[in-house]
């Protein structure tokens, strides 16, 4: 399934909890799908597809937003908590810290939906837990 197929299917999908999805395609050198959950105050999730993986990303903060005196503490906390966060991991892309989930490229829609919802819930927890490290 490519990003267009995901956009169509996600837009028509309704979860058992009543969540629906707003999808917007961002065109460029790489196809990206921006997904927001209706009925859930969260973060936009960006979905992109590589050769073997579907990667769902939430952008957390940039290097500039981190309090310099607490940066090491923040990085340690990220390492310590990463394994506890279900289906998501931390990463850094350029100067941006992200929370992401990677799925097999052959994953069905329900797995992507699960990832998008859980990534959002995880991101709310992560940002709440780490906001003291940010300016």
């Amino acid at each position: 399934m490519n990003t267009e197929d995901f956009a169509i299917k996600l837009s028509q999908h309704r979860t058992t909890e009543g969540f629906t999805f707003d999808c917007q395609r961002i065109t460029g050198e790489v196809e990206v799908l921006q997904v927001e959950i209706n009925g859930f105050d969260g973060f936009p999730v960006f979905i992109t597809q590589t050769q073997f993986q579907i990667i769902c990303i939430i952008y957390l903060w940039t290097e500039d937003e981190i309090r310099a005196d607490r940066r090491t503490e923040m990085l340690e906390m990220m390492l310590d908590t990463s394994i506890s966060i279900p289906l998501s991991s931390y990463a850094r892309v350029g100067d941006r810290y992200v929370l992401f989930g990677a799925l097999s490229v052959s994953s069905e829609l329900d797995k992507v939906v699960e990832e998008v919802v859980m990534l959002n819930e995880n991101a709310v927890d992560v940002v709440s837990a780490m906001e003291d490290f940010l300016k």
Binding site: I26, T27, G28, E29, V30, V32, Q34, F46, T48, T50, Q51, F52, Q53, I55, I57, Y59, V93, G94, R96
Partner: peptide, 20 residues
């Protein structure tokens, strides 16, 4: 190759997103 390609793709995707 998948590792290098994924890194490159995610960087490109981030560029596309931040530009947008």
């Amino acid at each position: 190759v998948a590792m290098v390609q994924t890194t490159a793709d995610i960087q490109k995707a981030t560029e596309v997103i931040t530009k947008n």
